[in-house]
Amino acid sequence: MSLLAVHDLAVSRGGLRTVEGVSFTLRGGEALILRGPNGIGKTTLLRTVAGLQPPTEGGVEMAEDAVAYAAHADGLKAALTVTENLRFWSAVFGGGPVGPALAAMDLAALADRPAAALSAGQKRRLGLARLMVTGRPLWVLDEPTVSLDADSVARFASVVRAHLAGGGAALMATHIDLGLDEARVLDLTPYRARPGRAVRPAGFNEAFA
């Protein structure tokens, strides 16, 4: 049973489709890295899989409430402490305890600091620790290693590996080599949408082209 099945997916940004005909499946224990030039639609595809925007064509099949999404913004509140931030998301997602997540991302020493006092890299680590407390099997990650140093990247890779070993799966867009040798790579370049009259226009820009 696969965690995620994407078939013949087309997504669009600004009323124009960016990629089309994308199909892949992810089973527990698997990771897939999306590659492709800027503007090809990696972020859009990830947001579509996360359910934040509807697919233009094709379908995304998965169990309900399976996705934990992490993007450029970490969803942290500056006025709350590190623990409070994490505990909030754990409560919202009905996930697990915050202690192991803090330890895994090396944040235990900062647990009672307000998030406002964290550096960019530390905030990023807290944002990734949030993934662990959601208790969700499918991680959808958009450039997860931005502003992380080499040590933190390695730490993050080991967290992802542990998640995969526990039966989870990860779908990510990244340009950095995480050292996840078991991960498959999907280059989106061949799926770039061809301009032309669409049967079902993605938006105004296609309907009136």
Partner: peptide, 14 residues
């Protein structure tokens, strides 16, 4: 919306 919490809330079970 600025800090991304809204994206995360939209994917939350509530």
């Amino acid at each position: 919306h600025e800090d991304g919490s809204l994206d995360l809330l939209a994917t939350a079970p509530i």
